[in-house]
């Protein structure tokens, strides 16, 4: 991976990070989109799709309601894609096991996203005060400028999170991936599917619908029976 690749990945980290709260919110921040997008700029969108698939459901049930800040699954997706790509190349390890290891290393580091996001919003507190002061002196353009400057806080916070995930993740993977890759390969599909299933279960547990368990059981049993009898 060359410097230009890291810069492009950083750009994706900022764009997708902004989409979480500050800009547009068309959901390019979801792991299912952010990871393939990162993979695309690195020249391997399928690798990104695999990362996105593993991460999409994990925190989908955590709603960005009011002042609540969910873990930064966007930067986890971007960071894990960069890690799987760069460390896979560096260590000569590839395929799904490397993707799984990158995702497993990146997931806990998503907590940094919450810290940086909180800092960005604190910076915006000051911008809001300055914006109101500008408005008080009749300067509406000044308020507009302060409002838009909030984008910088969110973009920097996203980039910082992605950098921390890639930096710490690279060190961790450098020392652990060669030892763990065999065990991950031995688990076959179990480990890969377990991540999606934990996400599905978490979503099911937070969905708040009266008949959710019966609907889930009926859909699960019906589908499995149809697949089995095919």
């Amino acid at each position: 991976m060359v410097i230009a690749d890291y810069l492009l990945a950083g750009l994706v980290a900022m764009l997708t990070g902004l989409d979480r709260v500050a800009l547009v919110q068309v959901m390019i921040s979801r792991p299912l989109v952010a990871a393939p997008l990162t993979g695309l700029v690195l020249g391997n969108p399928l690798l990104g799709l695999e990362v996105g698939m593993l991460l999409e459901l994990l925190w989908l049930g955590r709603l960005p309601v009011g002042a609540a800040i969910p873990p930064d699954d966007t930067q986890v997706a971007v960071g894990a894609t960069v890690l799987a790509f760069s460390m896979g190349q560096m260590l000569g390890l590839g395929g799904m096991p490397m993707v799984i290891l990158a995702v497993l290393v990146a997931i806990p580091l998503g907590k940094f996203g919450q810290i940086f996001d909180r800092l960005a919003r604190n910076v915006n507190d000051r911008l809001a005060v300055a914006g109101l002061k500008a408005l008080g002196s009749g300067n509406t353009n000044g308020l507009e400028r302060r409002h838009l400057m909030g984008l910088i806080s969110f973009a920097v916070s996203s980039l910082a999170t992605a950098c921390v995930i890639v930096l710490i993740g690279s060190v961790v993977l450098f020392y652990t991936a060669p030892q763990l890759i065999g065990a991950v390969r031995d688990t076959g599909l179990s480990l890969q599917y377990s991540l999606i299933i934990v996400g599905a279960a978490s979503l099911l547990g937070t969905i708040n619908v009266n008949r959710s368990i019966s609907l889930f059981c009926a859909a699960f049993s019906g589908t499995l029976l149809v697949l089995w009898m095919r």
Partner: peptide, 22 residues
């Protein structure tokens, strides 16, 4: 949300079946 719950069931069953096949 109910439709989502059904799709979660379909997805889990599909992954489970693929795991058994593997």
């Amino acid at each position: 949300k109910e439709s989502t719950t059904i799709l979660i069931g379909v997805l889990c069953a599909y992954l489970s079946f693929k795991g058994c096949e593997h």
